[in-house]
Simulated assay, not measured.
Amino acid sequence: MANNVLKISDLKIAYGGIQAVKGIDLEVNEGELITLIGANGAGKTTTLKAITGTLPNCRVEGHIEYDGKPIKGLHSFELVQRRLAMVPEGRGVFTRMSIQENLLMGAFTRNDKVGIADDIDKWFGIFPRLKERATQMAGTLSGGEQQMLAMARALMSHPKLLLLDEPSMGLAPIMVERIFEVIRNVASEGVTILLVEQNAKLALQAADRGYVMESGLVTMHGDAQQMLNDPKVKEAYLGEG
């Protein structure tokens, strides 16, 4: 039997009279890389924000379970303490802190100083640009460098579940390839990942399973490789057909 890390049942989200998410079910099992694809406005980011409790005033109905326990109503810092981390759309780095300080903030739930130092060295090895700019303010970095930092900062918390919201948005193609290489490597190390991504082809190529979201509904889900070859997915999201 699959070990659910995240289980969403009949999730509905409304802003005033606007129903942004209309009753979706979604599961992420331990060790999986799951992708949620769809057009702008489909409800993907809203779904991630509902998981992390970071939505503005709205009505959230349904069930969200993480690691077998309901998490609706918990604060973001409580989720990080439970080893659930998110890299938000737009990166969300601490712009007036240095790269080094941002990474230390990612480890605020930990007290193993040697392990934290080792992890900073690890991410500096994976992202040499960050090492070169370790004392530089994060706000002065390029978009790609900020994305590297946001991912490294989230992974400093040793998450059991990592949520990634549009990690390739606004990046040059060579940087997109680098970010996806890191996503695949992190997944291969056993970190469970839920990836929201507009680049459907890269997302499905990296994922174990995929969900398609349209107008607040999940309209398709299944094996990612099969979805890559599905005529409807090809036409709507891969520019093929």
Rank of each mutant, 00 (worst) to 15 (best):
G239P: 06
D223P: 06
V233F: 08
T135P: 08
K44W: 01
M97L: 15
V87L: 07
E61C: 09
H221N: 15
K131F: 10
M105N: 07
M175I: 15
Q146P: 00
Y66W: 10
N40W: 04
P173T: 14
P167V: 06
P167T: 08
L84G: 10
V60R: 09
N102T: 07
G90V: 03
L162A: 09
L195R: 03
S157P: 02
N3M: 12
P56H: 11
R82I: 06
Q147E: 05
G17P: 00
L130E: 00
V212F: 09
L79G: 00
P159G: 09
A117T: 06
R209F: 15
K44N: 08
L141I: 02
P128T: 07
L202M: 15
F124I: 09
A200V: 02
D10L: 03
T45A: 08
L33M: 11
E78G: 08
L161S: 01
G68N: 05
K232G: 06
S215C: 13
T46G: 12
K122M: 10
L194M: 12
Q205K: 15
E65N: 12
A206D: 09
I99M: 04
N199W: 05
V21F: 04
D118K: 12
N57Y: 14
V93M: 10
N199S: 05
M220H: 10
E65C: 13
L238D: 00
T46N: 07
L104K: 10
G23E: 12
L162F: 05
I183A: 00
G139R: 10
K232N: 14
R178V: 05
K49D: 02
G125V: 07
T95F: 12
M137Q: 13
N185V: 11
Q198S: 03
P88G: 10
D165Y: 04
Y66T: 06
G43L: 07
E78C: 07
L194E: 01
L204V: 04
N185R: 13
D25R: 10
Q19S: 14
S9A: 13
G31Y: 09
A138D: 03
W123L: 03
E32F: 14
K49M: 05
A14Y: 09
H75Q: 15
H75P: 02
G216Q: 06
G144A: 01
I99F: 02
L104H: 07
N40D: 08
I193F: 08
L26H: 04
T46D: 03
E189K: 13
T219C: 09
G68Q: 08
N229E: 15
A20F: 02
E181P: 05
A138M: 10
A152E: 10
M227W: 06
L55V: 07
T35S: 15
V233S: 01
G170A: 13
G144R: 00
K72I: 13
A117Q: 12
Q136W: 04
I116T: 00
E78M: 14
E189F: 09
I13H: 05
R153A: 00
K7R: 15
V218G: 05
I64K: 01
D121N: 11
E78A: 12
Q205F: 13
I126D: 03
E145P: 00
G222T: 06
M227E: 06
N185S: 15
E65Q: 14
S142Q: 07
E30A: 14
L238P: 00
